[in-house]
Each structure stands twice: as structure tokens, then as C-alpha cells.
Design a protein around this nucleic acid. Structure first.
Ligand code: MN
Ligand code: MN
Ligand code: ZN
Ligand code: ZN
Lengths: 136, 136
DNA sequence: GTTAACTTTGCAACTTGGTTGCATCAATTT
DNA sequence: AAATTGATGCAACCAAGTTGCAAAGTTAAC
């Protein structure tokens, strides 16, 4: 059985050809990608199918989505063990020059002391700034 | 001179009737509001005018915007002294039951130790969960 | 093996929130 | 008063995401 196949099955996702392709594209990325980005990596693919593929992946915690405030949601692979609980979360970085969004997997979202009238379910922390890639 | 008038002029915003009205609506809120919310508080008002009013307010740091991931940006008044620099920022809370977004003005965004290849400009931290308001 | 049931895919069409162009109106300056 | 500048209102547009539905593909039952 292929690597990608078992990765899908581990998350209870039926491994179709399309899904294996999408997973392999996601695996190649160094930054999170949007639905539109994903669409462009394929010669000919339906946006809706890709959309639903990403949704399935996210529902099964194979990937997580990042709302970086740019207006298009980005997606990146989860770690093997990730359950997308607050303690699994990490910080994201959006470079305002190259517009890329990176998972800072090594930087956990810092815990905050919420007033007792609030109970926590999830945290989204996006840092904007400039990365040291070449910016033309 | 009216309170609202001087608040506008303090931020170098020409105080028109429309702008004073919008500012007063913003002042009444206990939670951040969206453009659509704002539109509904007026009997008859043009969405575009309100949109541009909010934009002007934000550009002049009278208000700040919050992207809470719901798909509609929320707005809330800044503190008098706010310059919207990283050290001025606070955490926001989105209740998944009542869908309201609150400024946690007392909770500054925790600082994170970024790898040196990243320089920080801004941080958006939104906590999702449940607030203790009555939820029907 | 054929049929039935269920799932995935592809196309078209729609929704929503946000945005732009441009003409009109109001305020300010000369 | 005429000219300039800025604010407002209407219509039209745009991008991202989403839904409905039929066709194609898979799996399970007979
Ligand atoms: Mn990530
Ligand atoms: Mn706030
Ligand atoms: Zn960069
Ligand atoms: Zn609530």
C-alpha cells in the first residue's frame, strides 16, 4: 500500500485517485496553500471537487485551515498525531511581502488566562510581518 | 463642541453628520459589529457610505477591525491612546453560540519568540469558545 | 455476474461580503 | 459667485466560497 494511501486511511478517508493527488501536492508545500493555489497546480481540475476534497481532509483532521486575514483561507497538513485541540495548535506567520503563510509548528499558541465567563474551544493566532525570503 | 465631534477631530477625521452617527452607534456597542450589523441599525443608509466611513475610521485608528474567521469583519472603537501597534493589541473572543465578538481589552496579545528570520508587524489573536451570556 | 445502493466527481449556477466607478451634493477656499 | 475639494448615493462589479443535481465510479447484495 502506498504511503499516501495509508495516510488517508489512517484518517478514515477513502483513498481515491484525486485525493491521493491532492495529498501529494499538499505534502510538497513549504507554505500553506489556498484553494485557488491548489487549483492552479492542476492542469485541469474542478474547483468544487478540490474544495470538497479539502473539506473532507479538514473534517478528518488530515489538514487544518488558516484564516490569515487575506480573504482566502489557507490549508496545511496536520502532524500525524494532531487532533486539532487547543493544545495541538501552533502559531502562523503571514509575510506581507511574499504573501506566504507559514506554519510555525515549533511555536505553540501561548495560553491566555481567560476571565471565567469565557470557556475556550479554539485559538487562531496569526502573526503578520516579513520573512527573510528574497522579495522582489 | 460635541464629544463625538472632538473625538473625530482628534483623529483628523472631518466630522460630518453621517460620521458622528456612526461613531455614536459604535460607542453604544458592547461587542464588535460588522458592516452588515451597522447597516441594520439605520433605517435608511447606503452600505457603501458606511463601508467608507468605517474605512476612514480604521485608517485613522479611531477603530480597529477584527477578522474573527466568520467571514464578516468586525469593528470596535480603539482606546483614546491606541496607535494599533503590536504593543497596543489585545485578544478577541468569538462566542460560537451567540456569534458575538468581544474585545478583551485587558488581555494583551502575548509576545512570541519568533525565529530571527521573521520580523513582526502585527498580530491577530482570536479565541473561540462560549461566553456566559444567555444562549437560547 | 447483475442489480441496487452509495459515494465521488464535474458542471452550472448562486450567495455573500466586500469593492470600484461615477455622478451628484455639500462644504470650503479663492 | 465661481472654483476646488471632499462626502455621499446608486449601480454595477468582483472574488471566494458554496449548493444542487446529474453523471460516473465503487461497493455490497442478491
Ligand atoms: Mn499550521
Ligand atoms: Mn478589539
Ligand atoms: Zn516573505
Ligand atoms: Zn455567547
Amino acid at each position: 500500500m502506498k504511503e499516501s494511501e495509508s495516510k488517508l486511511e489512517n484518517r478514515n478517508i477513502k483513498p481515491t485517485a484525486m485525493r491521493e493527488l491532492v495529498l501529494s501536492v499538499l505534502s510538497e508545500q513549504t507554505a500553506a496553500i489556498s484553494l485557488a493555489d491548489l487549483e492552479q497546480t492542476f492542469e485541469k481540475a474542478d474547483k468544487v471537487t478540490l474544495y470538497r476534497t479539502l473539506k473532507t481532509f479538514e473534517e478528518n483532521k488530515l489538514i487544518h485551515s488558516i484564516d490569515d486575514g487575506t480573504g482566502s483561507v489557507k490549508y496545511a497538513l496536520c502532524k500525524e498525531t494532531c487532533q486539532c485541540h487547543p493544545e495541538d495548535l501552533h502559531v502562523h506567520f503571514l509575510c506581507t511581502k511574499c504573501k506566504k503563510t507559514y506554519c510555525l509548528n515549533d511555536i505553540p499558541v501561548p495560553s491566555v488566562n481567560l476571565p471565567t465567563r469565557f470557556t475556550l474551544e479554539n485559538i487562531n493566532m496569526v502573526i503578520k510581518g516579513i520573512c527573510s525570503n528574497f522579495h522582489r
